[in-house]
């Protein structure tokens, strides 16, 4: 009983944007530093790792491509969780988290597409293949852009937040369906002849650098996300202050008229 009350109190304290700003401010340098450190180690290991006997040096792009693709999905999951927070608990930070994450997620998804395409050029001989995976990520990218467009289109903050939350959740429910249908479509049109990453196994000498750089990019994402959330909260404060000063000016005008 007291424990749940304690937990609620702690969550409420976190919900306070001022408390959050202070926490984010003290956390950010550590997170950013850790991200840089882990990325240096991970990417360093990636370049030290042996080349693939078939793909040669091009396999190294995997060490950034796979983390980007992972983060594209991770970010959407995080946004769906924030969407629940906005709609169910009306948590004030949840919609900030959702709005701040969308552009970062879109950039990571775009990077995953670009690196995938660069990787594909020597492998497939063409920049783009309507491979099931690439296509699904492409649709995910379109969904990110839709969410960003929706949040930009509505100027009322809380309304935009709830609309984006609903769209995010509807998209989240649809992702498995889209993935399934794209797979079906792909097998119907292209018998599985394209190169696939999930081949037999990945050798441990390749796996370790991959995991470490994935952790590094995840830390980087978290740092960027915290930064974007902080900026969003400040932006909202500025707009609230502007509105208040507009009101104050009107009040002065009314007083002047009265006297």
């Amino acid at each position: 009983m007291s424990e749940t009350a304690n937990l609620t109190a702690r969550l409420t304290a976190l919900a306070n944007p001022t408390r959050f700003l202070a926490l984010a401010g003290s956390l950010l340098p550590w997170l950013g530093g850790a991200a840089v450190l882990v990325l240096v180690v991970g990417l360093g290991m990636a370049f030290a790792a042996p080349e693939d006997y078939q793909q040669g040096i091009t396999v190294r792009i995997m060490y950034i491509h796979v983390p980007f693709a992972w983060l594209a999905m991770f970010c959407y999951t995080l946004m769906a969780a924030s969407a629940l927070g906005t709609l169910v608990w009306r948590h004030p930070l949840a919609d900030v988290a959702l709005k701040a994450a969308a552009p970062i997620g879109a950039v990571f998804t775009a990077l995953a597409l670009v690196t995938g395409s660069i990787w594909g050029k020597p492998m497939w001989g063409t920049w783009w293949v309507w491979d099931a995976r690439l296509t699904s990520v492409f649709v995910l990218f379109l969904m990110y852009l839709g969410i960003i467009a929706l949040t930009r289109a509505l100027d009322d903050q809380s309304r935009a937040a709830r609309a984006a939350a609903i769209l995010t959740l509807v998209g989240f429910i649809n992702i498995p369906i889209i993935k399934f249908s794209v797979d079906w479509w792909n097998t119907l049109h292209q018998p599985a002849s394209v190169f696939r990453l999930d081949g037999p196994t990945i050798h441990p000498s390749l796996l370790w650098p991959l995991l470490i750089s994935a952790v590094g990019f995840t830390l980087l994402f978290l740092a960027l996300h915290l930064m974007a959330m902080r900026a969003e909260i400040w932006r909202r404060r500025v707009s609230a202050m502007r509105r208040m000063s507009a009101r104050a000016a009107e009040g002065k005008l009314a007083e002047g008229r009265a006297s």
Partner: peptide, 8 residues
């Protein structure tokens, strides 16, 4: 907004 969702 809805074209990506109508792909399936």
């Amino acid at each position: 907004l809805i074209l990506p969702l109508s792909i399936p």
